[in-house]
Amino acid sequence: MFPIILRRLALSIPLLVIVSAITFVLESFVPGDPARTILGINATQEQYDALRATLHLDQSIAAQYWLYLRDVLGGDFGDSLFTGESVLGTINQRLPVTLALVIGATGLSTLVGVLLGVYSATRGRFSRRLTDVVSLLGSALPNFWLALMLVSLFAVRFPIFPATGYTPFAESPGQWAAGLVLPVVALSIGGVAMIAKVTRDAMLTTLGLDYIRTLRASGVGRSSIIWKHALRGCGLPVVTAVGLTMIAFVPGTVFVENVFTLPGLGTTVTEATNQHDLPVVQGVALTFTVMVIVVNLVVDVLYSFLNPKVRVE
């Protein structure tokens, strides 16, 4: 298991460098000038040139990236160009909101998706077709549209949940949970569709294997065969689907957080991109990349438990 973890961590280092480089280059093409935005239109040319030199904006993209990379390797992610706050401080403050969305949506998608997949695999052709329809709709409908529909229905027409805003867990656990219901549901719809279809297909394949027929012939109960033996045999494809779904939720939070005005990393990176606040954009991009690496690492560890051959390899 430890060689798998070490190998994954070693591969993550060049990934972080590549992501940071691509983000740096793409951000340089965004229209706008941070120095002009900070100083305003009334600043003199001397003030403008001095600020550009202070921010290293007068140097080439390669030189700017090298200075940034050097600071990051030293543990300094810089400060926001507009607020002056530490990038790490901003990320630490906003990260819990994004994590709550991603973890909540993953849990809901896994629970509903697995139950729906098992049900459709064991209840006949109609339920299988229904799962296909649900999967198609869930994959086709965009998160931001679903979020707007949920707000319109469950926050405006029927004021059950708050439409926007976020309450920290320490202030009120009840309001914290209520404020996350609609965002989590909006984010998880696509994940439910994917996990349900993968679970259904894997369950159908597993139920046709020889050892399942042997269990039936031995008098093992139907529920035990489905939930204890067959579902375990579906572990690898289901875990893969859950991992891919969780990774997809990470960028998906950008749209959902902006619809519900949640103070997470999604709204942070949107505001920073509009302001050309490169240190914040870079910090959020690296945080998202680390989240993806952690998810892949957890999936690899689960693989080693579900399939001992992985540990040998």
Score class of each variant (00 low, 15 high):
residue 265 L to E: 07
residue 247 I to H: 02
residue 272 A to P: 07
residue 124 G to S: 09
residue 97 V to I: 01
residue 202 A to M: 12
residue 30 V to Y: 02
residue 236 L to C: 00
residue 262 L to H: 05
residue 212 I to M: 14
residue 77 F to K: 00
residue 172 S to K: 04
residue 264 G to N: 09
residue 206 T to L: 03
residue 65 Y to K: 02
residue 145 W to S: 11
residue 92 N to E: 07
residue 190 G to Y: 03
residue 125 R to A: 13
residue 21 A to P: 10
residue 85 E to H: 08
residue 239 V to F: 03
residue 169 F to I: 13
residue 117 G to V: 09
residue 214 T to F: 13
residue 65 Y to D: 03
residue 93 Q to K: 13
residue 51 L to P: 14
residue 260 F to N: 10
residue 19 V to G: 05
residue 191 G to K: 13
residue 313 E to C: 00
residue 84 G to E: 10
residue 91 I to W: 04
residue 63 A to I: 06
residue 15 L to I: 15
residue 112 V to H: 04
residue 181 V to Y: 04
residue 236 L to S: 09
residue 87 V to M: 04
residue 254 V to F: 06
residue 193 A to L: 11
residue 280 V to A: 14
residue 293 I to G: 02
residue 76 D to C: 09
residue 81 L to C: 01
residue 102 V to I: 15
residue 165 G to F: 12
residue 179 G to Q: 07
residue 182 L to T: 06
residue 163 A to I: 05
residue 297 L to V: 08
residue 308 P to M: 08
residue 84 G to R: 11
residue 139 S to Y: 10
residue 305 F to A: 03
residue 203 M to Y: 13
residue 165 G to R: 10
residue 154 F to G: 13
residue 223 S to M: 03
residue 231 L to A: 10
residue 270 T to H: 01
residue 133 V to H: 06
residue 79 D to A: 12
residue 197 K to S: 15
residue 84 G to V: 11
residue 189 I to S: 12
residue 283 G to M: 04
residue 154 F to P: 14
residue 174 G to D: 01
residue 173 P to G: 03
residue 90 T to I: 01
residue 199 T to C: 05
residue 65 Y to H: 05
residue 56 H to L: 12
residue 300 D to V: 08
residue 72 V to I: 15
residue 229 H to N: 04
residue 306 L to Y: 07
residue 308 P to L: 07
residue 114 V to M: 14
residue 247 I to P: 02
residue 270 T to M: 04
residue 4 I to Q: 11
residue 89 G to L: 04
residue 182 L to N: 09
residue 243 G to F: 08
residue 119 Y to L: 14
residue 279 P to E: 01
residue 276 H to N: 13
residue 154 F to W: 15
residue 46 E to A: 14
residue 281 V to R: 04
residue 20 S to C: 14
residue 77 F to S: 00
residue 306 L to W: 06
residue 27 E to L: 15
residue 263 P to M: 08
residue 113 G to S: 05
residue 209 L to Q: 14
residue 285 A to V: 03
residue 13 I to A: 10
residue 133 V to F: 14
residue 299 V to I: 14
residue 172 S to Y: 06
residue 284 V to P: 04
residue 82 F to E: 02
residue 189 I to T: 10
residue 189 I to D: 00
residue 5 I to N: 09
residue 30 V to Q: 09
residue 74 G to H: 13
residue 192 V to W: 15
residue 218 S to H: 12
residue 29 F to R: 06
residue 241 A to S: 14
residue 18 I to N: 02
residue 196 A to M: 15
residue 155 A to E: 11
residue 307 N to C: 09
residue 125 R to W: 09
residue 4 I to F: 10
residue 199 T to M: 06
residue 182 L to C: 09
residue 12 S to M: 09
